[in-house]
Design a protein around this nucleic acid. Structure first.
Length: 348
DNA sequence: AAAGCGGGGAA
DNA sequence: TTCCCAGCTTT
């Protein structure tokens, strides 16, 4: 089938969606009114580079605690960062708060893609998704699911990310004027449940007859992606400083890796194990046998663990002394939560 | 245009 | 292990 011929994709896809849509907490219930723009916005930000199953418990927690833009705008930075801990990409949490405050100040969430794009944390995908899903506008919504579905439908052999403009044009060509929001969500549900990355279930797919990728006999070959460079290995040391049953926590700089998050003290990451070179205080350090290994998007990290107990009333670096028994509730990102559990076993 | 930025689930 | 995911911001 030629790429130049518009296909009837939307009608069979929407019919499938009406029967098989996933029941997700930010979607309007069948027969209900339009979805709440606050919930659509919050879910879309949480879903950036994050799978649905990971988002749901955070979405439930956030909407229970902050049910509106106004409520979220009144939150403290530190409590929001702690509530986001574990979800990753922490710049999203900082932008979420800035966006909530901007929306509360102007009265409501804008309804056009162009205005939405001007808000913190809202880029091309999220602006289109909100405009379509929350406000019923026709918008071309392209996420990783849509990229996969479209490159299969049209057997796009050009590799990502270079093929993005072509994919956007193809998506535009199949996006309907009516129910654009449902269409976008239907594409995502299809990509998530049938047109999956590794083993697509083409026999259950409502678009099988129109799919060039299925016709090739190897739809799982799409999308083609450019080769990725190997991740570098980096090293660091984390410092557990105990004083009178409490441990020293610091807040990381607002920008950069894990920016704005509560953390154990560390030195900078290095190309070889730095040992105690960056220790925040002079003390009798004990090195733990166990290390913590953590994978980031762009490098792998091995962290050595150093522990010291200092007498009460001893001077120490700036930070917060957190009760060791309650360390689980400190709102540490996963790297530091893993380390804290390891230090905890040292105690036992 | 390219780089920086987390974490968890699936295969 | 590796791959992947409802991307955005900064340089």
């Amino acid at each position: 089938m030629s790429d130049n011929v518009p296909r009837t994709i939307a009608a069979p896809l929407l019919k499938w969606y009406d029967a098989h849509a996933r029941d997700l907490p930010w979607r309007a219930r069948p027969g209900a009114n339009a979805p709440d723009p606050y919930r659509v916005w919050l879910s879309e930000v949480m879903l950036q580079q994050t799978q649905v199953a990971s988002v749901i418990p955070y979405f439930e927690k956030f909407t229970a605690r902050w049910p509106s833009f106004e409520a979220l705008a009144a939150a403290e930075d530190a409590e929001l960062m702690a509530a986001w801990a574990g979800l990753g990409y922490y710049a999203r949490a900082r932008n979420l708060l800035a966006c909530a405050r901007a929306v509360a100040a102007r009265g409501s969430l804008p309804e056009t893609e162009a205005e939405l794009l001007g808000l913190p944390g809202i880029g091309g995908y999220t602006a289109a998704a909100i405009a379509a899903i929350a406000f019923g506008q026709r918008a071309v919504v392209v996420d990783a699911n849509v990229e996969r579905v479209v490159t299969r439908l049209f057997a796009v052999t050009a590799p990502l990310p270079g093929a993005r403009p072509r994919i956007r044009t193809l998506t535009d060509s199949i996006t309907p004027d009516a129910r654009a929001g449902d269409f976008a969500q239907a594409m995502m549900d299809l990509g998530s449940t049938l047109c999956t990355a590794r083993a697509p279930r083409c026999l259950a797919c409502p678009l099988r007859e129109q799919c060039d990728g299925f016709a090739t006999g190897a739809p799982e070959m799409f999308p083609v992606k450019a080769a990725k460079p190997a991740k570098p290995q980096r090293y660091g040391t984390m410092f557990w400083i105990e004083r009178a049953g409490r441990v020293l926590l610091v807040r990381r700089p607002a920008k950069g890796l894990l920016g704005g998050m509560c953390a154990l003290p560390t030195g900078p990451w290095a190309d070889s194990p730095p040992g105690l070179a960056d220790a925040p205080i002079s003390a009798e350090w004990r090195m733990l046998d166990e290390q913590v290994r953590h994978g980031f998007t762009h490098f792998n990290l091995d962290v050595a663990l150093a522990a010291a107990t200092i007498p009460e009333h001893t001077d120490a670096p700036q930070g917060e002394w957190w009760p060791i028994a309650e360390i689980e509730s400190a709102g540490l990102p996963t790297l530091f939560a893993k380390a804290a559990r390891t230090f905890g076993r040292m105690h036992a």
